[in-house]
Amino acid sequence: MTVESSSTEHSSALAKRRNDVSLNRYSGRFAPSPTGPLHFGSLITAVASYCDAKAHQGLWHVRIEDTDIPRIYPGSEEHILRAIDAFEFEPDSDIIFQKDRLDIYEDVIQQLHKKNMVYACQCTRKMLGSNHIYVGTCRDLALPFHDQAIRVKVSDHDICFQDHLQGQHCSNLKTDLGDFVLKRRDGIINYQLAVVVDDFLQGMTHVVRGADLLNNTERQIWLGQLLDYPRLEYIHLPLAMNDQGQKLSKQNMAQALDLSKPSELLQQALHALKQPAIELDQPHKMLQQAVAQWNLDLIPHRTHLDGVFI
Rank of each mutant, 00 (worst) to 15 (best):
T2D: 05
T2K: 11
S6F: 03
S7H: 06
E9L: 15
S11H: 12
L14C: 14
A15R: 06
K16T: 15
R17V: 12
R17N: 03
R29T: 00
A31N: 07
S33W: 00
S33V: 06
T35F: 11
G36K: 05
F40P: 00
L43W: 10
A46H: 02
Y50F: 15
G58W: 10
H61L: 14
E65Q: 04
E65D: 10
P70S: 08
R71F: 09
Y73G: 01
S76D: 06
H79R: 01
I80K: 00
I84Y: 11
A86G: 09
F87P: 09
Q98L: 08
K99G: 00
D107M: 05
V108I: 15
I109S: 07
Q110A: 13
K114C: 08
K114P: 01
K115R: 13
V118R: 07
Y119E: 10
Q122H: 13
R125L: 09
M127D: 14
G129L: 03
N131P: 01
H132N: 14
A142N: 12
D147A: 15
I159R: 11
Q162V: 08
D163N: 07
Q166F: 03
N172P: 06
L173M: 09
L173W: 07
L177R: 06
L177D: 07
F180P: 05
R184S: 02
R185Y: 04
I188A: 10
N190V: 04
L193K: 04
V195Y: 05
G203L: 14
G203W: 13
T205A: 09
A211M: 07
D212W: 01
D228G: 05
P230V: 10
L232W: 01
L237Y: 11
L239K: 02
M241A: 03
M241R: 02
K247L: 01
K247R: 12
L248I: 04
A256Y: 04
L257P: 05
K261S: 11
L266G: 11
H271I: 09
A272R: 03
K274H: 15
Q275G: 04
Q275K: 03
P283S: 08
H284M: 03
H284I: 06
A290K: 05
Q293F: 01
W294R: 06
W294T: 12
L296N: 04
L298Q: 12
L298T: 10
P300S: 09
H304F: 07
D306N: 12
G307K: 05
G307N: 02
I310Q: 10
